[in-house]
Design a protein around this nucleic acid. Structure first.
Lengths: 99, 99, 99, 99
DNA sequence: ATCGAACCCCCTTTTC
DNA sequence: GAAAAGGGGGTTCGAT
C-alpha cells in the first residue's frame, strides 16, 4: 500500500506543495462533496413532490410502492427468465406475471 | 386515507378518464422517476471519482472517511473517541496508535 | 451519554476491577463474538450447498432468485394491496397476481 | 447454459416426477432456507445482546467498533490510520484528538 | 487472484 | 416517539 501523499505537506495549511498530491486530493474531495450536495438537493426535490402529492390526496406510501414495482419490472427477469420458470415449476411454485 | 382514484378509470388502458386523477398520478410518478434517475446518475459520477482516485494511488476508503469527518460535528467525534478508549481500557485492550 | 466505565480500570491488564463493568463488558463482547462465529459457520454451510448444487448442474444464481422470491411472497403485499391496485389501474399498469 | 430441469415437471403441483430433479431442487432450496433461518435467528440473538448492553448503559456503537478492531489485523489498522493522517494533512485539515 | 457487481445489514433521517 | 425509508459500508459472489 503506497501513500501517495508527500510527507512535506504535513502542516495544517489549506493546501500543500512538495508534489501535486495535496492539491489533487483536495480537488477530488471537493468534487465529491459538490456532487453529493447536488444529490442531496435532488433528494429534497423528490421529497417535495411526495409532499405535494399528499396535498392532493394521494398516499405517499403507495406511490413509493408503485415506483418500486416499476423499477423491479424494468430491471429484473431477463435472460435467465426461462431457467427461472423451469426451476419454479420444478418445485411447484405457481408462475406469476411478475416473476 | 381515501383512495383519490376514480373507479371509472379502472381498466388497464394506458391512461384514464373519468377524472383528472389518473393523469395527475402518472405525472407525479414520472416526475419522481426522472429525479431519481438523475440522482442515480450523480451517484454513478461519485463512484467514478472514487475509481479515478484509486487509479491515482489514493485509498478510496480513507477519502470517504475524510469526507465523513468533514461533515461530522467535531464535538461528537471527540466524545465518541473518549468513550471508545474508556471501553477498551475496561476490557484490557492496550491503547494503540490507531485509536 | 454516560460512560458506564470506571476510570480506575485504565490499565491494559486483561480484565479490570473498580466495578463490575469491565467483566460485564468482556462477557458481552465474547458472547457476541461467539454468536457471530456460529453465524459465519452457517454462511459457510449455505455456500457449500450452492457449490454442491452447481456440481449437480443447477444454476446457483437462479436458485438464489427463487429463494428471494419465496421470501418476498411470504412477507409482502398485504394490507395496502387494495389501494395499490386502484392506483396501478389508474395509471394503466395491468394488475398482476403478484401485486 | 443447461437447464437441469426435466420438462415433464412443468405443472404447478407441489413436487414433480419425470426425474429426480424436482425433488432434488426442492431439497436444496429447503436446506438453504432452513440454514438461512437459523442464521437470521443468530442475527436476532446478537441484536438482542446489543439491546441488553444498551440497557446496561453501554454504547452499542462503540462495542461494535471494539469487535471490529479485535477482528482486524493490527498492522492493517495502523496502516489505515497513518494513511488517514497523511491525507488529512495533505488537504490542510488540522489533526484532532479524535483521529 | 483481482476486479467489479450484488447483497445484506446497520445507521440516519424522515414521517406519522 | 415509534415506524419506515433512504443512504452508506462491508462482505460475498461471479467473471475475467
Amino acid at each position: 500500500m503506497q501513500a501517495a501523499v508527500s510527507q512535506e505537506s504535513a502542516k495544517p495549511q489549506p493546501t500543500t506543495t512538495g508534489g501535486i498530491t495535496g492539491e489533487h486530493l483536495s480537488q477530488l474531495v471537493e468534487r465529491i462533496e459538490r456532487l453529493e450536495e447536488e444529490k442531496a438537493d435532488l433528494g429534497q426535490d423528490i421529497r417535495d413532490i411526495y409532499t405535494e402529492a399528499k396535498g392532493h390526496g394521494f398516499d405517499a406510501k403507495v406511490i413509493r410502492q408503485i415506483i418500486k414495482i416499476r423499477k423491479m419490472d424494468q430491471n429484473e427477469m431477463d435472460e435467465q427468465e426461462a431457467l427461472l420458470h423451469l426451476y419454479m415449476q420444478a418445485i411447484g411454485m405457481r408462475p406469476t406475471q411478475a416473476h
